[in-house]
């Protein structure tokens, strides 16, 4: 089987077979990162541009390491140091990068849909590394890989996503990803952070956090994205933490073998209390490890095939 697409823009676009191909390929790549020489020559001579219009440590580093472990030349461009600050449009930036003949562009952008636009302007593959409140496909794929690794399956699991659903690209990608692989997704948030019609994406809204936690096999905690709130969507962090934060008390209702995911970075003490974040249920560091493998798989599947 082959990934017959130029770009990875959304999980919504991917079929179940494609997601499973990516996950099984990523599974093979996990071993590479455990070698002493963590480098394979597969993408030698290929150029991968990480174009980041938003601050990011985890995702950018993960893509960079993935590229380097495959021997590609990874070039990082961040908005603060580029011509973006001089007012160059995304289209012009795209045309200029295109002229340098890269083999892949990884884009992180604050505007939803920017990767779709970039993909129209450039011939090389584009990987969406998070666009506005839209999607973050590689994050969802690494979450799926982590769950599959830990629990052995996705099909039939109950996933609860807690937090700022309205502004979360991770939530959107994960709702598509988990439902496509046969899991049942419940979402819970303060109504001010619950977007209209989210249930059309195939998930169910649960009103009380406690109820959503007690049914879950997997709990995914989202970061409160204060930077995207024009006006505060809740009265105070203290109140949010008490009502929606995952703490020891709420975890008492959870299943014994529940696992917890958090896409990071964590606001410790806000959406998750430190003892839970560092506790035995937490898969946060497995997620980071799998992130590299998933991104290696994406590079391999997009660049390893034939050129037209």
């Amino acid at each position: 089987m082959r990934l017959k697409r130029k770009d990875i823009l959304t999980i919504e676009d991917l079929t179940r077979d494609e997601i499973e191909l990516i996950l099984s390929t990523a599974g093979s790549f996990r071993e590479v990162s455990e070698r002493e020489i963590k480098k394979v020559p597969t993408l030698r001579g290929r150029t991968i541009i990480n174009l980041f219009y938003e601050a990011s440590t985890r995702t950018r580093t993960s893509f960079e390491i993935a590229a380097k472990r495959m021997s590609a030349d990874a070039i990082n461009i961040s908005a603060s140091s580029s011509s973006v600050v001089k007012g160059e449009t995304l289209k012009d930036t795209a045309k200029n990068l295109e002229a340098m003949n890269p083999d892949c562009i990884v884009l992180r952008h604050p505007s939803s849909g920017a990767p779709d636009m970039l993909a129209r302007f450039v011939k090389c593959p584009v990987i969406n590394a998070g666009d506005g409140s839209h999607e973050h496909p590689s994050q969802a794929l690494l979450d799926l890989l982590t769950i599959k690794e830990k629990l052995g399956r996705i099909d039939g699991l109950k996933i609860t996503i807690v937090g700022d659903i309205a502004h979360s690209r991770v939530a959107r990608s994960n709702i598509y990803g988990f439902t496509k692989l046969g899991a049942k997704v419940n979402v819970v948030a303060a109504p001010t952070m619950m977007p209209m019609g989210i249930e059309e994406m195939g998930c169910t809204i649960i009103n009380r956090v406690e109820d959503a936690i007690s049914v879950a096999d997997v709990i995914m905690i989202l970061r409160v994205q204060l930077e995207r709130h024009k006006v505060p969507l809740f009265p105070s962090l203290r109140e949010y933490s008490r009502l929606f934060g995952l703490d020891k008390e709420k975890m008492e209702r959870a299943k014994k073998d529940v696992v917890i995911l958090h896409p990071g970075p964590i606001n410790r003490g806000v959406e998750i209390s430190p003892e839970i974040a560092d506790g035995p249920y937490s898969l946060i560091l497995d997620q980071v490890k799998n992130g590299v493998a998933v991104r290696m798989a994406l590079f391999y599947l997009l660049l390893g095939g034939g050129r037209e």
Binding site: R2, L43, Y300, L301, L303, G304, G305, G306
Partner: peptide
């Protein structure tokens, strides 16, 4: 790698 149509 990259010369065949399908990724192995």
């Amino acid at each position: 790698i990259g010369m065949k149509q399908d990724q192995p």
